[in-house]
C-alpha cells in the first residue's frame, strides 16, 4: 500500500482563489485519489496543534495555495512538514486567462473548471511521487 499523502489547501476566504484550492483538494481526496490522500485544517498548523504537526512531519504533503502569499506552503514549512511540492491557483489563472471565476462562497462554472484542472494536475503529481519519479 502506498503511504498517505496530505493535500493541504490554504484557508482563502476573501476571493475565489481559496475556494478553488479547497475544491481541487476535495476532488483529489474524495474522488480522484481517495484512500491515497487526506487533508486537515490548515488552521491547526497555524495554532501549532501537536497532533497535526506530527501528521505533516511524518507524511509527504502537497500545499495548494490560492495566491502568491502561499499560506499553506509557508505554514507547512514552519511546521517542519515533509513538503514535496506546491501549487498556486494564481499560476493556473495565468495559463487559462479565458476563465474568470467570480463567485467566492460557491464556485461558478469557470471556478469549477479551474478546480478540475488543478485537481488533475495534483493527481498527476501524486502518481509521479508514488512512482518515485520525483524526490519525496
Amino acid at each position: 500500500m502506498t503511504e498517505l499523502i496530505f493535500i493541504i489547501p490554504c484557508s482563502g476566504i476573501g476571493k475565489a482563489f481559496g475556494t478553488i484550492s479547497r475544491e481541487a483538494t476535495y476532488q483529489v481526496v474524495e474522488d480522484l485519489r481517495k484512500g491515497e490522500t487526506d487533508t486537515l485544517c490548515l488552521s491547526l498548523l497555524v495554532i501549532g496543534d501537536e497532533d497535526s504537526n506530527h501528521l505533516v512531519q511524518s507524511h509527504r504533503c502537497i500545499a495548494i495555495d490560492g495566491c502568491p502569499l502561499e499560506c499553506a506552503k509557508k505554514n507547512l514549512q514552519l511546521a517542519g512538514a515533509k513538503l514535496t511540492t506546491n501549487f498556486r491557483v494564481v499560476d493556473l489563472l495565468k495559463e487559462h486567462q479565458n476563465l474568470k471565476p467570480k463567485n467566492i462562497t460557491f464556485l461558478d462554472q469557470e471556478g469549477r473548471e479551474l478546480a478540475k484542472l488543478l485537481a488533475d494536475q495534483i493527481a498527476a503529481k501524486i502518481d509521479e511521487l508514488n512512482r518515485g519519479e520525483i524526490d519525496s
Binding site: 476566504i13 476573501g14 490548515l42 497555524v46 502569499l69 502561499e70 499560506c71 499553506a72 509557508k74 462562497t105
Partner: peptide, 19 residues
C-alpha cells in the same frame, strides 16, 4: 456578502502567522 457587507471585513486566518 449579504447580511452586513458595509460593516464587516475579514482576513485569511493563516496570514496571522505568515503575513
Amino acid at each position: 456578502e449579504r447580511l452586513r457587507p458595509d460593516n464587516t471585513v475579514t482576513i485569511c486566518l493563516p496570514l496571522f502567522l505568515t503575513g
